[in-house]
């Protein structure tokens, strides 16, 4: 379970995340939606301790991420496909990750198989396509067999096969009782794989509801999304920062 409470992040005068509160419960895929620059990635980086909140808290199973005794075994994280040294092979990248937690080589081979990277595991990550990089990121997230998964735009750059695979993967993980927080700007895709959604705009919570909840209104998730984020569109149009900070 991920709990975010009154989370705020300011960069000088710019407020990226503004008093955000939501919960990602176990046994469900929580879709994290919002326009570019809404603060999704910043929120996720704060949950895993790469950035410190200006105020507010983020916890996983009630514990601050940095205080987890074995973070990779509790939380699997995929933030950015470019979180790998391009000069290292995919296998060595995963081995280095595994060694920090005493995870055996057999588990590395297992996730390589799970993500379909067998044929390219010996290749340097710098030669990977975006889709292969995403698979490597997902392999890293699965490494510690964690009860919570945080995936930032995991279907970006995947071919239709890969998109389908991620959809089945996250649904399966949630069905096993795990917590999955998955961000995407692909509303259609989230409508297919999420059980509930958290919609944010300009760093603030716009809606938190189960799919099909009347709070999201009649019509498709896309209709609800466009209606909810209508006030954030000017921001999106004028944004300099594409959410990659």
């Amino acid at each position: 379970m991920i709990q975010v409470q009154l989370l705020t992040k300011r960069y000088g005068p710019h407020t990226a995340v503004d008093g955000l509160t939501f919960t990602a419960p176990p046994g469900a895929v929580t879709g994290f939606l919002g326009p570019n620059g809404a603060g999704k990635s910043t929120t996720m980086r704060m949950i895993v301790g790469l950035e410190r909140p200006t105020s507010g808290t983020a916890t996983v199973n009630g514990v601050r991420y940095a205080d987890l005794s074995a973070p990779l075994r509790s939380v699997g994280t995929m933030l950015d496909a470019r979180s790998v040294h391009p000069g290292r092979t995919a296998f060595r990248h995963l081995m280095a990750m595994a060694r920090t937690h005493g995870i055996p080589r057999s588990r590395v081979e297992e996730v390589v198989g799970l993500t379909g990277l067998e044929s390219v595991a010996g290749r340097r990550a710098g030669t990977f396509s975006l889709g292969m990089g995403q698979r490597l990121g997902i392999a890293g997230a699965l490494l510690g067999d964690p009860g919570t998964l945080i995936l930032d735009e995991p279907v970006n750059g995947l071919d239709p096969d890969g998109v389908l695979w991620v959809r089945h993967l996250v649904k399966g993980l949630a069905a096993e009782g795990r917590t999955v927080l998955l961000s995407s700007h692909l509303v259609h895709e989230l409508a297919l794989c999420a059980d509930r959604v958290v919609v944010i705009g300009r760093g603030r919570l716009l809606a938190e509801a189960a799919l099909g909840d009347p709070a999201l209104g009649a019509g498709s998730l896309e209709d609800a999304y466009l209606r909810l984020t209508a006030g954030s569109v000017e921001y999106r149009a004028g944004a300099v920062d594409g959410g990659t900070r």
């Binding site: 074995a70 973070p71 990779l72 075994r73 920090t100 937690h101 005493g102 067999d145």
Partner: peptide
Amino acid sequence: MSARGPGATL
């Protein structure tokens, strides 16, 4: 699926 064993020791 929960935290097991020690984590990132030196």
